[in-house]
Amino acid sequence: MRTRLHIVKNEPQPSQAPVVFEIDQLCKRFKTNGSGDVSVLKDITFMARRGEMICILGQSGCGKSTLLKILAGFMPPTSGSVRLNGRPVRRPGPDRCMVFQEDALFPWLTVRENIAFGLKDRRMDRDTKKREIDRFLSLVDLTDFENYLPQEISGGMKQRVSLARVLILQPEVLLMDEPFAALDAQTREEMQNLLLALWQKFKHTILFVTHDVGEAVLLAERILLFEKGPGRIREDITISLPRPRRKDTNAYFLNCRSMTAKIKAIGVEG
């Protein structure tokens, strides 16, 4: 069942945290007009422990976004199962929140209203709600911008709002679909640091899709290296660099280089 997993040898002591997310032999095919089906994902099997930061790394077209959509419950898998805390995932819900790559804020709501959106249905008294919203506004450093509309703020700020509006729902798992890919290099680095700080604080389980090797090495405890045609897990790699990780260290650089070499190898074979 887990033959596709090759755990790298130098793994630190295995984490004792309980498994929250179990993905078992997930397949996804899309119907095309004419010549049969296209297999997008094949036999995806892995699990995520509580508080783990897992990066899904692969070239574009390897099905990583599709995988995230299935995990979020936006589309059903063709076969296989997704379980969160033992219960099968069938539809979207606030226990698995997604941060999208593109701007997915509600343009007619202010920053504050966007962050408050998911709380509306929660049973919570006014003051608690207000305090929660204030807290998350300040966590993403947007207190001064609470009354701005999305069209009036920068791309980085928008992604901070996207982050805050799901964090406030206290999801079990955060699904992030190349959330920083559209940002400039400096803003991206700020966002990566912010994400790490928030992760250290809240200990969410995070599945982070990216095609950026440097980003994966900076963030991940584990990297699931994807190959395409059909999309599948090539390798499950543990990154044991100590934190805080710095981009100007040799260890970081070596990790990036070996990861790039692995990706190249896939390309040559494929």
Partner: peptide, 13 residues
Amino acid sequence: SPILLQAGAMMGV
């Protein structure tokens, strides 16, 4: 945009 509806759905709407 379907993304807005998906965003709503994941926030429990």
